[in-house]
Computed example of a mutant assay.
Amino acid sequence: MSAGNDIDALIDMMARLPGLGPRSARRAVLQLIRKKELLLTPLADLMHHVAVSVRECAVCGNIGSASVCDICANEKRATGEICVVEDVADLWAMERSGVFRGKYHVLGGTLSALDAIGPDELGIPRLIQRVADEGVTEVILALNATVDGQTTAHYIADQLEGQVRLTSLAQGVPIGGELDYLDDGTITAALRARKEL
């Protein structure tokens, strides 16, 4: 493969990333090449290291370099609260706000009959088991305000009804909104104003 073809392949690969189209990918690749020693080589090394070392937390589904993530391993985190999120990006958004001091459970998606995604594909049975095993007193459903997100929230609420206090994010999260795109203040307001389901 020629160097030109390698560069085109890199541009095509970068263009697949969220937020980067072909033009942005081309600009990013040119910048990486121009600063090869400062950016490209260290980035390639770091990406290889992450590809080899990254793993899913055995407890909550977060990602990190250990079998149990830093949040689950932190004994200072409140053990009575579990915040259920759709994916890792949502967990990171919640953490960025700095308000929630409990633990998390990452579903890895939402229920979807059209895509044949049921409770077992999302690890909902594992969440229910965690609630029983860890002495959880509150489950906060911080799912995206989409139809699938709300369907998933209602399903989880039905499964846990009477076992634990169930709350959801309240004001601040717009209908159709996704946590990863919200600012810290909106997430903080929504978490503080959560309500019973």
Rank of each mutant, 00 (worst) to 15 (best):
Q31H: 15
R34S: 09
K35T: 02
K35L: 03
L38M: 12
L39N: 01
L39P: 00
L39T: 00
L40C: 10
D45P: 01
L46Q: 13
L46R: 11
A51T: 12
S53M: 13
C57K: 02
C57V: 01
A58Y: 02
A58E: 13
A58S: 14
V59A: 09
V59C: 08
C60D: 04
I63W: 11
I63K: 05
S65P: 08
S65E: 14
S65W: 11
A66L: 12
V68K: 06
V68R: 07
D70T: 01
I71Y: 04
C72Y: 03
A73Q: 12
A73L: 12
K76D: 14
G80W: 05
G80Q: 13
G80H: 13
E81S: 10
E81H: 13
C83N: 07
C83M: 14
C83K: 09
V84C: 10
V84I: 10
V85L: 01
E86V: 04
D87T: 08
V88N: 06
D90V: 01
L91F: 00
M94P: 04
R96H: 12
R96N: 11
R96L: 01
S97Y: 08
G98S: 09
G98L: 12
F100K: 02
R101G: 14
R101T: 15
R101D: 15
K103Q: 07
Y104G: 00
Y104R: 00
Y104L: 04
H105S: 04
V106N: 00
L107W: 00
G108A: 04
G108Y: 06
G109P: 11
G109A: 10
G109E: 06
T110W: 03
T110P: 03
L111F: 02
S112N: 11
S112M: 10
S112T: 05
S112W: 02
A113W: 13
A113F: 12
L114M: 14
L114D: 07
A116F: 13
A116H: 15
I117H: 04
I117Q: 05
I117A: 05
P119S: 08
D120E: 14
E121Y: 03
E121L: 08
L122R: 06
G123D: 08
G123H: 10
I124L: 09
I124N: 03
P125C: 08
R126N: 09
R126F: 02
L127F: 02
L127K: 01
L127C: 02
Q129M: 08
R130I: 00
R130M: 01
R130Y: 00
V131R: 03
V131I: 05
A132C: 07
E134S: 06
G135I: 08
V136P: 06
V136Q: 01
V136I: 14
V136W: 04
T137W: 06
T137R: 13
E138N: 07
V139F: 03
I140M: 02
A145T: 05
A145M: 07
G149V: 04
T151C: 05
A153T: 03
A153V: 02
A153K: 03
Y155F: 15
I156C: 08
I156N: 03
A157Y: 04
D158T: 13
L160E: 11
E161Y: 14
E161A: 15
Q163E: 11
R165H: 14
